[in-house]
Amino acid sequence: MKTLIYLTSPTYSSLALKEGLDLALVLGTFEQDVSLCLTGDALSLLHINQSPLQRHGKHLYKLLDGLEFYDIVNVYVKEDELHNSTIELWDGITSLSQDAWHSMLRDHTHIYRF
């Protein structure tokens, strides 16, 4: 059973993205096959050199390097969104073409969107 956590919410303006990541980490802890994908506002999670204040919530970028300890190795983004970004992003991502993106979605049993 493959599970995809599909992140679209901005990083710090609500708890949605954090609670999506929490679910991903628990799935990993329970040795489930889990991947992440990010699109739209959620791409802000990947911006390097971000420095949220304590009021913004937990520094979520710091979680990214720890994903591999939960066996979360696939973090997908859309290729065309990467081309539009002028900000340097975390380097653990896999960019997918539109066709590959759709194929990736079909490849998962459960998709949770946050």
């Binding site: 929490d22 679910l23 799935l27 802890t29 329970f30």
Partner: peptide, 8 residues
């Protein structure tokens, strides 16, 4: 959240 995983 483990309970959600069991449900799924």
């Amino acid at each position: 959240l483990g309970t959600l995983i069991s449900l799924s």
